[in-house]
């Protein structure tokens, strides 16, 4: 037990470290100010600029964009290729969801709980890797991936169905006979997924925002244990969202290149988060641990590196705007207009 703890601590210190095991700061961070991703200023701590000086620089850039200042808006056509690439990717993922749900249905019919759990996790993985699409799937998303909290009678609600209804059954030892009908329903819904994914309208803004928000949702709903409470698959689910984000960022990279200094810090943080989750997985013998099995140190490393990544991804939509922010009229101006 002690040996395991020491080994874990050593690995942790190698990568990022936690608490008292890492007295040295990992790296000096670079900060981006406001909506101007091209302005990076060294952190005040240990740097040579005061907070006031930083603020003054940022204000000056805001007033006089000039060369190297505010970015020219992109054209909507610039997004055609990235979105098309993403669409092909998500169709592949949708097909994989369908395949695993079919196996899941077979496992449940055969009463094989172990196989059913494995297929459930695979189906869930591929569904989450759709990432950029699920916000646009509306009712179909609720039918496949809906939680009980939004329903009047919670887990007892007749509308509680889909993946999480089956998850509850499999991980609480419910007899598989009772899961046949939810599995059949899920299979019928998932059959529509590929076509639905193909037809989704994705605006440039939505696509750029997804680069940031897929992982925001993962942090809010998956790492908190809200979304997959019975299987405890929150970490694994977060890594699926990471995969989706990596894909979206990869398709957007040609657009981001040359637009301020967004790409490199985003890629660095993506790689760092990937390295942290991989090391946690290794520490658990190569399998994704349930959320509850993470040590405090592992949790802190995962939460912290995801937080740092999100703070970077936040710059992506701002760097890819297709129109300038228009100043809105004042009440007085609108009143005059009316007269």
């Amino acid at each position: 037990m002690v040996a395991i703890a020491i080994a874990a601590a050593t690995l942790a210190a190698l990568l990022a470290g936690c608490g008292s095991s890492s007295p040295e700061p990992v790296a000096r961070s670079i900060r981006t100010i406001g909506a101007h991703p091209d302005i990076t200023v060294e952190e005040v701590t240990g740097g040579h600029l005061s907070v006031q000086q930083e603020a003054a620089i940022a204000m000056e850039r805001t007033k006089n964009p000039g060369p190297g200042g505010d970015l020219q808006p992109l054209h909507a056509e610039d997004f055609v290729k990235p979105v098309a690439e993403y669409r092909r990717y998500s169709e592949r993922e949708a097909k994989a969801v369908q395949r695993h749900v079919e196996s899941l249905q077979g496992d449940i019919a055969a009463g094989d709980v172990g196989a059913a759990k494995r297929d459930w996790l695979d189906a869930y993985d591929h569904y989450l890797r759709l990432g950029a699409a699920y916000g646009a799937l509306g009712t179909l998303d609720e039918q496949i991936d809906g939680n009980s909290g939004r329903l009047p009678d919670g887990v007892h609600d007749p509308d509680f169905t889909g993946l999480h209804r089956i998850e509850m059954g499999l991980w609480t030892g419910e007899p598989t006979a009772g899961l046949r009908s939810p599995a059949a329903y899920l299979a019928r819904r998932v059959a529509h997924l590929q076509v639905a994914v193909r037809r989704i309208a994705i605006s440039p803004l939505t696509y750029a925002t997804r680069a940031h928000e897929i992982l925001e949702d993962a942090q809010r709903d998956m790492l908190s244990g809200v979304d997959a409470p019975w299987s405890g698959a929150g970490l694994r689910a977060t890594v699926d969202s990471l995969a989706a984000t990596e894909f979206v960022v990869r398709t957007l990279k040609p657009l981001l290149n040359g637009r301020g200094s967004t790409v490199e810090p985003v890629e660095n943080e993506l790689a760092r988060f990937r390295a942290v989750v991989d090391s946690v997985r290794r520490e658990h013998g190569g399998a994704w641990p349930a959320l509850g099995a993470l040590t405090q140190c592992q949790r802190e490393r995962v939460d912290g590196s995801l937080g740092a990544l999100l703070q970077r991804l936040d710059d992506v939509p701002g760097a890819l705007e297709v129109k300038r922010t228009k100043p809105y009229p004042t009440i007085a101006e609108q009143r005059r207009e009316r007269q």
Binding site: Y328, P329, T330, I331, Q334, R338
Partner: peptide, 23 residues
């Protein structure tokens, strides 16, 4: 203040802004 206005308790005058250009 409502967007385009000056004071917290100012009427936001949605009637002047039916298309949502201001709010």
């Amino acid at each position: 203040a409502p967007l385009g206005g000056t004071g917290e308790f100012e009427n936001p005058r949605f009637d002047l802004d039916p298309r949502g250009e201001r709010i």
